[in-house]
Design a protein around this nucleic acid. Structure first.
Lengths: 327, 327
DNA sequence: TTGAAAGCGATACCAT
DNA sequence: ATGGTATCGCTTTCAA
C-alpha cells in the first residue's frame, strides 16, 4: 500500500504539504492541491490510521463496554451507539464484559492502549476509579458510575411509578414486584418508584428478586405464584423477566390479562413478539444510546469534561397483558 | 503514560532489551529481566498497541461485519466470535453494515486502515473482489463469498429438509413455504432442501418470499392465509418470520398446532420465549461463530490462506408449534 | 506557500 | 546477552 511519501513524490511536493492537504490544516497552493489529488487517485492511497494515531495520540475509535450482547436490551443500545458514532465519523469497538469485573478491567486497559478517543461504559461496578486511572473521556450508560462521570439513564423511578400506577388502575390488587439484581442502582430506583405508587393504596404486595433472565424468572415466578394464587398483577423490572413470568403463568393455566396482569420494563422488541404482547414501561433505547454517544463526542472534541447527566423519560406501551383501564 | 524508553532508563538497560523482554524474543539476562520487571511495575507501564502496530503492521484486532445487530441471530453470533477472539487474545471491532453495500465497503476500508489482523464478514454481496482489494485474512460467515475465501455456514439444505420432513410427518398436508430474500444463497439452498422433502409426496405447496423481519412476515402471512384457509403447515426460513406467522395465525384465530403447524429456522432464543414455543431448525450459532473465528486466527497466525470451508449440521428443536409425531 | 526534520513508541537488524 | 539505530507512516513546529 502506498504511503504519504509516495504521494509526495508523485505530486512533486513534500510530505508536509500532503499532510496539510489531508488535514486541511495550513496552506496548500492550487497547483499542489491538484497534483496531490491526482497522485492520491492514481496510487489509491488512504492514510494509515495507525500512524496517525501514534502521532496525535488520538483516534476515531470509541469503546463500548456492555455486560451482555445477548440480553435484547443491549443490541438495540449498541445499534444506536454505532449509528451515532458512524454519523460523526467514529468507529465502535464493542466489548462484552460478561457481567465480570475483571473482564471489564481488561477491556478498559486494552482500549486505553489503543488510544481510543473515548469509552461508553455500562458498568457492573458501582463506584471506582475508572476516570482517574485511565483519564480518557467517558460516559456511563444505563448504569451510573457515582463519580464525576457524566451519565445517561432512563428516569427509572418515574418509569416504575408509571407502570405500577397503570397496573393498579387496571384493577390489580395483589401485586408481585419482580425486581432486578439489588446491586444495580437502577433496581433501587425502580423499587422506589414502585413503593411510591403503592403508597396509601389498598394493595397487597410481594417483592422478590430475580435476575434479568428469561429462564430464571420463569422458574421463580412459577414457584411463587403456586404458593400465592391470589396474586393478580406482576410488575417486572425487565422485559426478559416479565416474559418469564408470562410463560410461568401460562404453564399454571392463568388467563392473561383476565386473571393475571403483567407489566414489564424496557420496551424491547421481544415484548411485541410474545402472545399476548407485553404491556411495558419502554425506555427510549435509541435515544439513550444516541445521547450517550453525543455527550462522549462532545467531550472528545470539545476537550471539556462535562459534568451533566441526562435522564430520559420512559413511556408506557399499553399492550395485551393488561386489561383496558377501568379505574 | 510511561513509554518503553522510560522503562529502559529506569532499569538501566536499552530499549532493545526491554523490547526483547516484552516479546520474549531473544536473550535477556536474569538481572536485566528483574530490573525491567521492577521498572514496569513502578511506572505502571503498558506498551502502546498503536506503536506496535505501526512497527509490525499487525494488530490483535479482528473486524466483524454483520448486517444488523438487532436481528436476534447476530448477537448470538457476535457473542461467539467475541468470546473466541478473547480466548486467543484478540479484540473485536463490530460493524453494522445495515444491509447496505456502501456501508460494508466503508467498513472494509476503515478496518484495513487500522491494520486489523483479519475480518469476519457476513456479507450482503454475492461476489466481489474483497480479497484482492484489501488482502487481509478473511472468513465469510453464514453467507458465502464465492471466491477463494473460506466460509463457515450451516448445512442449509439439510436443515431445510429436516424441518420440512418433520412438518410432513406431523401431519401437515398443505404447506406454506415462507422463504427469505431470494438474493441470499442460503435461501436458494433452503428452498432446495424444501423441494427435496416435498418431492414425491402428496403435498400441496405455496411458496412465497418474506424478509427476515417479524412485522413484515406477520403481514404477509396474515393476508396469504386468509386467501388460503386450507393451509395447515408453515415452514419459515427464519425464526423471525416464523414468529410473525405465529402472530398472524393467532390473529386469525387458528389453533396452533391443532389447525396449523409452524416450523422456523435459526434456533434463536426468541423461539423459546413465544407461546406456544417454536419448533425450529436450529443452527449451531455458537459453533458457527467459534469456527469462523478459529479459522481466521489460524490464517492470521499460520500465514496460510486456507481454502477449506466448513459446513455445520443443524439440529431440529421440537417444541410446541408442531404436533407430536404421528407418521 | 512550502519543505526539512524532529518526534510519536514500538520493533528488529547489526554490531559488539 | 546487550545496545545503537534505522524504520514504520504520519503530524507538526520552525525556517525559508
Amino acid at each position: 500500500m502506498a504511503n504519504i511519501s509516495d504521494v509526495a513524490k508523485k505530486a512533486n511536493v513534500s510530505v508536509a504539504t500532503v499532510s496539510r492537504y489531508l488535514n486541511e490544516s495550513g496552506y496548500v497552493g492550487k497547483k499542489s492541491r491538484a497534483a496531490i489529488e491526482c497522485a492520491i487517485k492514481e496510487l489509491n492511497y488512504t492514510p494509515s490510521e495507525v500512524a496517525r494515531s501514534l502521532s496525535t495520540k488520538q483516534s476515531d475509535l470509541i469503546g463500548l463496554i456492555i455486560p451482555d450482547i445477548k440480553n435484547p436490551f443491549f443490541p438495540e443500545l449498541a445499534r444506536a451507539v454505532e449509528d451515532t458514532a458512524f454519523k460523526y465519523g467514529y468507529t465502535v469497538i464493542l466489548c462484552n464484559s460478561d457481567e465480570n469485573v475483571e473482564k471489564e478491567q481488561h477491556y478498559l486497559q486494552t482500549l486505553s492502549k489503543k488510544y481510543v478517543a473515548g469509552i461508553i461504559l455500562t458498568s457492573i461496578i458501582d463506584s471506582d476509579k475508572h476516570n482517574n486511572e485511565f483519564n480518557i473521556p467517558m460516559v456511563a450508560l444505563d448504569r451510573p458510575l457515582d463519580l464525576d462521570i457524566p451519565t445517561v439513564t432512563t428516569d427509572n423511578q418515574k418509569g416504575s411509578k408509571l407502570g405500577t400506577d397503570y397496573l393498579i388502575q387496571s384493577g390489580a390488587t395483589s401485586i408481585l414486584c419482580l425486581t432486578g439484581p439489588t446491586t444495580l442502582s437502577s433496581t433501587k430506583l425502580r423499587l422506589d418508584g414502585f413503593l411510591q405508587a403503592i403508597e396509601g393504596r389498598q394493595i397487597e404486595t410481594h417483592i422478590i428478586e430475580s435476575p434479568y433472565d428469561f429462564e430464571a424468572a420463569q422458574q421463580i415466578v412459577f414457584e411463587y405464584i403456586q404458593g400465592h394464587p391470589d396474586i393478580n398483577g406482576i410488575f417486572a423490572f425487565s422485559d426478559a423477566s416479565a416474559i418469564g413470568a408470562l410463560k410461568a403463568a401460562h404453564r399454571l393455566g392463568k388467563k392473561i390479562p383476565e386473571q393475571l396482569q403483567i407489566v414489564g420494563f424496557d420496551g424491547t422488541q421481544m415484548g411485541e413478539v410474545v402472545t399476548p404482547s407485553l404491556t411495558t414501561v419502554a425506555q427510549n433505547i435509541y435515544k439513550l444510546g444516541e445521547a450517550a454517544t453525543e455527550m462522549l463526542i462532545q467531550q472528545i472534541e470539545g476537550k471539556t469534561i462535562l459534568n451533566v447527566s441526562k435522564c430520559i423519560d420512559p413511556q408506557l406501551y399499553i399492550r395485551e397483558t393488561t386489561r383496558k383501564e377501568s379505574t
